[in-house]
Amino acid sequence: MIRILKWLSVVSALGMVFVLIGGALVTKTDSGMGCGASWPLCEGKFMPTDITPELVIELSHRMISGIMGVVVLLLSFLSWKYLGHIREVKFLSFMSSFFLILQALIGAAAVIWNQSDFVMAAHFGISLISFTAIFLLMLLIFEVDKKFDTASLHIAKRHRIEIYMITIYTLIVVYTGALVRHTNASLVCGDWPFCRNDEPLAALNFVQWVQMGHRLFAGILFIWTVVLFIRVIKNYRQNRVMFWGWVATMSLIVLQVFFGAMVIFTQLNLGISLMHAFVISLYFSMLSYFVLLATRCAKYEKENESNIEGETSSR
């Protein structure tokens, strides 16, 4: 059964990548209404007759999301049943299914009733949480036969707190990035990293402030990641998981900044824009894995303190 779960988890994780990229593609090509105000059918039909590029993109995204919904629900059920004794499995099984269903419902509501830009900006973040839960569930499944050895890892409390904080902050950055696209603010600033070199900040309009707000938040995230990376390398160089995990995380944030700049320089090139969405998904997933490791360390630390107190009182 473990072998089946491994294959199922890999398929689910890869499939969710297509769901994430597909959702970003729908947004970036303005294909959200490609099937009209109809859901789950397209224009109220099983086989629409008037085929447009927007219809193909939207319908493909719906089909992939539907298939992955079934696969993820199956993965969640089997993981809960056979690996429920592992502390994080039940939580991640619930999170992966719940947020996948939630993002589908928000997408449906946007088609049928329409939604504000501020509500729709949360759609990508919800899909991201579902993908991350599936990604972590996959790592736990592979961890069953010690593919990843983290038992000896100890993360200091101050570093655990910082990992929690930067992960939550990343969701804020993701939301502001999605808001940029939904408010059509992607190209309102002609320069980078500033909006317009010859224009004072006071002269910026609302959508320019949305764009510059995202750049500011993203810049802070980049600097924060660099600082935390240095601390991790300094304190956990001997641990392979922490060392190589943070090397990967640092590489991803550098790529994210690069693709963010290239989105402006290439005038919203579709491939670059999709890579921008893909890289931040991997970055957030890596941070979430460190959150998982940090919560384990906190649990072991608390258990050890309880054992020491128990031994002391028995004397």
Rank of each mutant, 00 (worst) to 15 (best):
K234H: 12
R231W: 02
V207D: 01
V226S: 03
F217W: 09
I233W: 06
I233S: 02
F206L: 11
V247S: 10
R231N: 13
L228E: 04
N205W: 09
V241T: 10
V210Y: 07
R237A: 14
V241S: 05
G245T: 08
W224S: 06
A218G: 09
R237P: 07
F217P: 09
G219W: 05
V247N: 08
R215W: 00
W246S: 04
L228A: 08
F229I: 07
I223N: 08
N205I: 11
F243M: 14
V226P: 05
W224G: 09
N205F: 12
R215E: 11
V241I: 15
V207C: 02
I223H: 06
L221W: 10
R237H: 03
R237W: 05
M212W: 09
V226R: 13
V227F: 04
L228D: 03
F243K: 15
W209M: 07
I233E: 03
N239H: 12
A218V: 00
T225R: 12
K234Q: 04
L228W: 00
N205T: 01
N205H: 13
Q238R: 14
V227T: 11
Q211N: 15
Q211R: 14
W246E: 08
L204I: 05
F206Y: 14
L216T: 13
G213A: 10
Q211M: 13
L221P: 00
T225D: 07
P200W: 12
V207R: 15
V207A: 04
W209P: 01
L216A: 15
V207N: 14
N235D: 10
N235T: 06
L204G: 03
